[in-house]
Each structure stands twice: as structure tokens, then as C-alpha cells.
Design a protein around this nucleic acid. Structure first.
Length: 454
RNA sequence: GGCGAGUUGGCGGAGUGGUGACGCAACGGAUUGCAAAUCCGUGUACAGGAGUUCGAUUCUCCUACUCGCCUCCA
């Protein structure tokens, strides 16, 4: 049984799908104007893991996962004006990057990846319904959602409209009935992307796309809605308001999940601090996608996670060890119950990693591999970073072995020690047993440092 | 100002109303020509205060601190 912490009730509860043959999860995806940064990647890895657990529990063909691309947004418009490139070029390129980068993190592609611009008609329909039902109004080319018309507004994030107005720091547009009313549709000028609508040439507000697209793909009601905690308010609150006002109080997502934010070396990631980087930059620095994924999974999704070099290095060491154990091992048909149980308990990925450590300790390589794969780790497609060394060490092994045999007789170890030192400084791990000497290339192996020996 | 999350041993990080997870580091031992790797072993951690309880790190309240959202940035 899967248990999930449902933000709606702030309670961990048993997960019961609406239809076990059709489990539906919607996760808010990126606005596509630039490379995904490492904060963007956390929900991707978190919900990818949940996707795998759901597939494991209900069967691959019975789980649908949708993650949208927001490809109409003022940030994209700004980039287009700045670079002189058409919007579609920018969004296509960015989507390509995104899929590449997330693939490196071992994230499966969702079953649906809807683009906002392909669902404009559905959004317009929904906005019309909202107007008809008295939850939205048109004003000066805009359409606004009337928060006073929806009593439960603020329930998800536990905010009251009055408190928010009192503490508001935003300038209030004159055409709003209530300062908290938010935009469903807004007018576009010649330079902005736009579509014809009953309210003139314009474009959708940010929130309506998720309501319209999840409805189009999953219907009025589905199981899980996820995203970063920063989206809880206002984005998710507004999605709920739109969808429930339109389709009924008992519609939209049953379970709401939010992953906590990511920090870098103890500080909020920000461009001014210089600790802001993309997944691609990290990959280019030599941190493999698998290592990055492991670091993400070693902290529970509900807690803030600190990205540090130290963690990445520890993760790399652990994975290297596990890959050594599972090299050429055929994964077991089953997954360790300890791992399944940990993951079923509100996606306790850190607990699952502990269970993997236990499997490694007792040497059950087949089960270690199959179980790690449920977390998206130790897959054959992700191990390139470990096996990348193409260098025959057998001649060196023989060389040091011979010298050692001699030294053991004449007690002069100077030559052996010299070789050992050279090997170690070239990044080799030198393992001498009674019988022979084994050399293992470490992460910093550099064969050019051995040239003098030949 | 409003709202929320968190504070666990040297570091990271789970978890639990009553036998000190787990990883890294450290230390001791086995092993080794010496090492490394490996194996075995070693640590009186739960921010502070009050309360509930036979018993609290775990529940309740208060205090302090940290962080996040409310503002273009997930």
C-alpha cells in the first residue's frame, strides 16, 4: 500500500486511485526559455521516482503521467525580443535541451508532455465556462477570476484572502474587482504572441493552462498533482479555483504533493551569489546524471535539500562501489521488499538508499541492481561515467607483481614502492594480496602519468 | 507584515512513546614487507524551557534560531 502526504489535508494517507487501471499524475513542468537549473530538476527526479513506484504497483500500462511545457510566457517573449529569434525556435530548442538534460538524470519521459500553445482552444472554452458560471469577468481586454466567487480560495496553501490583501506588496490593477483576482486572459500587442478570443486578440494567463490541459488529458478528476513548493501559492491555488469553480467542488486532483526547495552550499541559489547553475553545467563539470540523481534522492522530497560538492563526491563513491558489485550481474526479477516499503511510505528515498546499502553489505548484487533500478539508479544506460576507462592495466600489474616477488626474497622494496607510488599518483588503486597485485582505475586515473614506465 | 517548513552525533541524513538506522569521516583490531582495499569492532545525537506520561528525541505549548513562499527566479 502506498502512503502519500497529501498537502490538501496536511496528512499522510493511504493512496487509493480513482481507477487502479488508470492512475493519473500531473506535474507542473518548466517554462521553456532557458536551460533547466538544478532546482528545476528536483521535482523531475522526485516525481519520476513516484512514477516508477506507481508503475511498479499498478502496472506500467495503468499509469499515466503528464508534465506540461509552458511555452507562452512573458519571459519567453523577452528572450525573443532580446535575441531577435522567433518564439517557436526558442521554445523548441529549450524543450530539446530539457528532455536531454532530464534524460541524463535518468528521468523517464512522461506519457504526455502537453504544450500550452496547443491547448489555447481548451483554455478559451474553460474561461467561457467560468464567465458563464459567474466566476470570472471580462474587463479592459482581460478576463479575471473572481476570487470572492469561490469560497475555498486559499484552502490548499492555508491563506485567507483578507490577510493576503493586508500584506500585499503588489500594485493593484484598476480593473480588478478584488486585489487577489488573477488573470485568465490578457490582451497582446503586435509584438506579443496572441490568439483571437471572445475578448479580443490576446494570450492566456499562466495558471489556466494546467487546468485546461489536465482536464483535456485526464478528465475533470485525477489522482495526483505535483510540483515545487513555490508553486503552491499562487499557481496551484489558482488552478484549483479555476478547475473546481468550473467543474465542481469535488473535482481536480485528489492528492497534492510539493517538493521542498533546493539550496546550494547552504544558501539560496541565486544569480547574484554565483551559485546558480544549470543541470547541463553540472554535467559538463563531470558530475554524472546518476550522481546528481543520487544526491537528490538522498534527501526526502519534503525537506529542503542542500546541493554540495561533498555530497556529490560521496554519492559518486557509493555508486562506484555499487557498480563494481553489480557489474555484469543480471538483475533479480524481484525488488527488495525493504526498498518497496520505504518508497511506498511517502516516497522515503533516503530510507530506500539505506536498504540498498544493506543489500550491498550482504553482497546480494542481483537484488541490489533490481532494487536500485526502481529508484532509477544502477541502470545499464547510466553507468558510462564509471566504465569510461579504456586502458589495459595487465602489463602494469605484471610489472609490479614481478618486482614484488623479487623484493619479497631480497627484502629490497624500493622499486616496488616506487611503482606503487607512481600508480597511486596516476589515480590507480593498488591492491596487493598474497597471491597477486590488482590495479583498479579510480575516478582521477590519468594514463599519461604512467608513460615514463614504458 | 501575512503564511508555512525545519532545528537529530564531526558532517550528511532516516526514524521511533521504552533495545544508539544508515552513509561519510574518525579511532582500535585483523590482514599487509609497508600500504590500499576488505573484514571485525568503537560513539552515551536528538535547539532551549515547560507540560502530558510509569517512561519523550518522538505528543502538546512556549522561546530562540534557520529557511522558504507571498515579488521576474522551481
Amino acid at each position: 500500500m502506498i502512503k502519500l502526504y497529501n498537502v490538501k489535508n496536511r496528512t499522510k494517507e493511504a493512496f487509493t486511485p480513482i481507477d487502479p487501471k488508470n492512475v493519473r499524475m500531473y506535474v507542473c513542468g518548466p517554462t521553456v526559455y532557458d536551460r533547466a537549473h538544478i532546482g528545476n530538476a528536483r521535482p523531475v527526479v522526485v516525481f519520476d521516482t513516484l512514477y516508477r513506484v506507481l508503475q511498479h504497483t499498478y502496472g506500467k500500462e495503468h499509469v499515466s503521467y503528464a508534465r506540461n511545457f509552458t511555452d507562452v510566457d512573458d519571459k519567453i517573449n523577452a528572450k525573443s525580443i532580446e535575441t531577435g529569434r522567433p518564439i517557436r525556435d526558442i521554445t523548441n530548442e529549450t524543450i530539446g535541451w530539457y528532455l536531454e538534460d532530464m534524460n541524463e538524470l535518468g528521468a523517464l519521459e512522461p506519457d504526455f508532455a502537453p504544450r500550452a500553445t496547443e491547448y489555447i482552444a481548451e483554455m478559451i472554452t474553460m474561461i467561457e465556462e467560468l464567465i458563464e458560471k459567474g466566476h470570472a469577468y471580462a474587463a479592459e481586454g482581460h478576463v479575471l477570476f473572481d476570487v470572492n466567487s469561490y469560497d475555498a480560495y486559499g484552502a490548499l496553501s492555508r491563506r485567507s484572502v483578507d490577510d493576503m490583501i493586508a500584506g500585499a506588496r503588489v500594485e493593484i490593477a484598476p480593473y480588478k474587482h478584488n486585489p487577489m483576482d488573477f488573470v485568465l486572459w490578457k490582451p497582446s500587442n503586435d509584438k506579443q504572441p496572441g490568439w483571437d478570443s471572445p475578448w479580443g486578440h490576446g494570450r492566456p494567463g499562466w495558471h489556466i493552462e494546467c487546468s485546461a490541459m489536465s482536464r483535456a488529458l485526464f478528465g475533470d478528476k485525477f489522482d495526483i498533482h505535483g510540483g515545487g513548493l513555490d508553486l503552491q501559492f499562487p499557481h496551484h491555488e489558482n488552478e484549483i479555483a479555476q478547475s473546481c469553480a468550473c467543474c465542481g467542488d469535488d473535482t481536480f486532483a485528489n492528492v497534492w504533493m510539493h517538493n521542498e526547495m533546493l539550496q546550494v552550499e547552504g544558501k539560496k541559489m541565486s544569480k547574484s551569489l554565483g551559485n546558480f547553475f544549470s543541470v547541463r553545467e553540472l554535467l559538463d563539470q563531470g558530475y554524472s546524471g546518476e550522481v546528481i540523481r543520487f544526491v537528490y534522492l538522498s534527501t526526502h522530497y519534503s525537506k529542503p535539500m542542500d546541493w554540495t560538492i561533498k555530497k556529490a563526491e560521496e554519492a559518486a563513491a557509493t555508486l562506484r562501489k555499487w557498480r563494481m558489485i553489480t557489474d555484469d550481474v543480471i538483475p533479480s526479477d524481484i525488488v527488495s521488499p525493504a526498498i518497496v516499503n520505504a518508497l511506498a511510505d511517502d516516497l522515503n528515498t533516503a530510507g530506500a538508499i539505506t536498504a540498498l546499502h544493506n543489500l550491498a553489505k550482504c553482497g546480494d548484487a542481483a537484488l541490489l541492481k533490481s532494487s536500485a533500478e526502481l529508484l532509477g539508479l544502477l541502470g545499464d544506460n547510466m553507468g558510462g561515467w564509471v566504465k569510461a576507462i579504456d586502458f589495459d592495466l595487465s602489463a602494469l600489474e605484471k610489472m609490479i607483481s614481478t618486482e614484488r616477488d623479487k623484493a619479497l626474497k631480497n627484502k629490497d622494496f624500493s622499486k616496488v614502492d616506487y611503482l606503487k607510488l607512481t600508480f597511486v599518483s596516476a589515480g590507480l588503486d593498488v591492491q596487493m594480496s598474497k597471491e597477486n597485485v590488482t590495479l583498479i582505475a579510480g575516478p582521477k586515473f590519468d594514463s599519461s602519468l604512467l608513460e615514463d614506465l614504458f
